[in-house]
Every structure is written in C-alpha cells, then in structure tokens.
C-alpha cells in the first residue's frame, strides 16, 4: 500500500471527495459479496463489479441517484439505510461499505452494529471533523465550520453527527470492535502522524 496506488487504479478516484473509493477497492478481494450503503449513483459498485467481480448490492435513498445506478446495471434499491439493513439475514455479506455517510445517519451506532450483523466486515469511511482546517475555521470565524470537507451551511448540511478520528477509535474500543485496518488520507496522500489533526478522510476496516 502506497500513496501512489491510491492515485491510480480506480477511475473513481478522480472524483473529488471520494478518494476513499480507492482504498475500498484495495480492501475488497475478488468475488466478495458486498453491500454498499448510500451508494449514490453506483460508481463504486460498478467499478467493484467490473474490476473485482464482486456480487454487489447497493442502497440509496435519492431517486435520481438510484435511477443512474440501475441504468449502470448495478443492483440498487431505493431505501433508507436502516430499513434496508433490517431485511438481510446475519452474515449475508463479506463486506458492508458505508462511504462518507456515517455522519448523515440518524443512529450511527445502530447502523454500525447492523452492518456488523449482516456483514462479516464493515468498511467505514468518513470525513474527519478533527482536521486542523475544521478546528481553525471554527476558531477564527466563530461560526459552524465551513471547509472543503464540510462545505455546507449549518442549515443545509446533510451531516447531523460529526465525528473525528479519535471519536471513532473510542467508539470502536467501547463497542469492542476490532479495527483490522485503518487508513488516513490528507492533502498529500497518506497521513502517517497525528491523524486526528492531519487526516481529511479516514477509512476503517472493522470486525466484531
């Protein structure tokens, strides 16, 4: 694993803000059974299906995104994430992916628990609210932080549960989940030191 390998490989990597796709592409092995929660227009699943021959399923609430995904040939159904998880029996998937959506869920811990029920492993990527730009923005402006990672006004943000790298580590410890792998991405690529301050995006591979 190197920073450069995130730069090439998945074509989806070029899409701004979805750099975690590349990491996810590295984690998931060929032919795995994958559920992508909040899969958007199905870009990641399409790529995983083509490159990794995964058996992919997606969930997305936004109708227009669902339409794009289906037109791509991805098995996506229009549903709320929590509701979608409920229908699946235990251990249906090898991986359940939640890419940059955790901060938008109403009950994040419940979602994570459900992910670990229906899947053997959970892949969770989220924007780090502890990044220094966020801290500075808040400190300097005295307003809800608006940064590249969190570009919204407080009133139109889809994000309702902000979390940092440290927050997630603490939660995992508290819930006794095993963190198998952790990836931190900053502006220049991989973040090696002070991830809670320097990582823009974090991706965790978690098991029960």
């Amino acid at each position: 694993m190197s920073a450069s390998s995130w730069g090439q490989g998945p074509v989806v990597n070029g899409k701004p803000g979805r750099r975690d796709y590349a990491i996810i592409g590295e984690i998931i092995e060929r032919g795995a059974k994958v559920l992508d929660l909040g899969c958007g227009d199905g870009l990641l699943l399409e790529w995983l299906k083509r490159e990794k021959r995964v058996e992919g399923r997606g969930v997305e609430i936004d109708r227009e995104q669902v339409q794009k995904a289906i037109a791509r040939g991805v098995a996506v159904f229009q549903s709320d994430i929590e509701e979608a998880l409920r229908d699946y029996p235990e251990g249906t998937f090898d991986y359940v992916i939640l890419s940059q959506t955790l901060q938008e869920t109403r009950a994040p811990v419940k979602v994570l628990r459900e992910m670990l029920r229906v899947g053997k492993r959970a892949v969770v990527g989220f924007p780090n609210f502890g990044h220094w730009t966020v801290r500075l923005a808040h400190l300097w402006t005295g307003r809800s932080p608006q940064t590249k990672l969190f570009p919204y006004e407080w009133y139109n943000s889809p994000n309702i549960h902000f979390l940092t790298v440290t927050d997630f580590e603490l939660l995992a410890r508290e819930q006794r989940w095993k963190v198998e792998r952790r990836y931190f991405l900053g502006q220049g690529g991989t973040v090696k030191r002070f991830p809670n301050l320097m990582a823009e995006l974090a991706v965790y591979l978690v098991t029960k």
Partner: peptide, 15 residues
Amino acid sequence: VRALRSRNRDVAYCE
C-alpha cells in the same frame, strides 16, 4: 423487493 433482499437475490428497485 424485501422478500428478494431477504434471500440476497440480485434486485434493483425504484419508485
């Protein structure tokens, strides 16, 4: 759709 999902069948759904 839910019945298919409960058996992890390949199903896409849109309203």
